[in-house]
Amino acid sequence: MWNIGKGVLTLFVVLGFIFLLAPLLVVVPLSFNAEPYFTFTEGMLRFESEAYSLRWYRNIFESEEWLRAIQNSFFIGIFATFLATVLGTLAAIGLNDPRLPFRKFVSALIISPIVTPIIVVAVGVYFFYTDIGLGQTYLGIILAHAMIGAPYVVITVSATLANFDYTLLRAAASLGANPWTAFRRVQLPIISRGVITGALFAFINSFDEVVIVVFMAGPKQRTIPREMWSGIREELSPTILAVATLLILLVVLVLITVEVLKSFGEKNKLSAN
């Protein structure tokens, strides 16, 4: 009886994972379709080599629009991440200090951009930024993306700071380090994992963000998701599947890198102990 229950549960979990992963798994082979269709051709099912091709990938790298979109996504993402990480890390350290007045209020304020429905954020930002002349500019989008990225940095850095032993800073001070040196040499290395994770969060967020971009971006600021958005609505071509596959690949690579870094860090800690 208990085993049946367990079996049902396992089945349910397996189905859940299929549901979660199926869309990703289907896109990858279809992006190699030699025909401009979105379903498996007979040839593909029989694994004939001529049924597969790289033409949609070639399309991406031969298209001015896609190349510009890739460039824009990285440009906007990197600057927004930088801004979010610097501001977010400092704020997290400040927030973690019990001497900060109105702590609860300040942290609620800082988190608010990500708990506000994105459509509302986009509307507000679009009106305001257009009024002050930042509509259809890189700066406008970078600021907006930094604004929704910073809370993630604050959250992740705060999490690592919660375990931070403040006596270390005092120890550093007593050894003659000024506050900046103490921060740089003692605190930053320890919280660096939180900072890096937060920065990654902020970057992916900007890289994937499309609602604000749909409203704010002019033709020159179109990012990858923006280009996909009009691609899906205008001329649905398998090129979009190829782009989607590349994005999935990027995520897998980033996650593996993070995992490797983590286990590397743990090993270091162990050997230091």
């Binding site: 257009t130 002349g133 930042l134 509509g135 259809q136 002019g218």
Partner: peptide, 14 residues
């Protein structure tokens, strides 16, 4: 929408 955004921000490139 695009034309309006360009004209209103004074950043016309079309």
């Amino acid at each position: 929408a695009q034309i309006r955004a360009q004209v209103e921000t004074g950043n016309v490139h079309w």
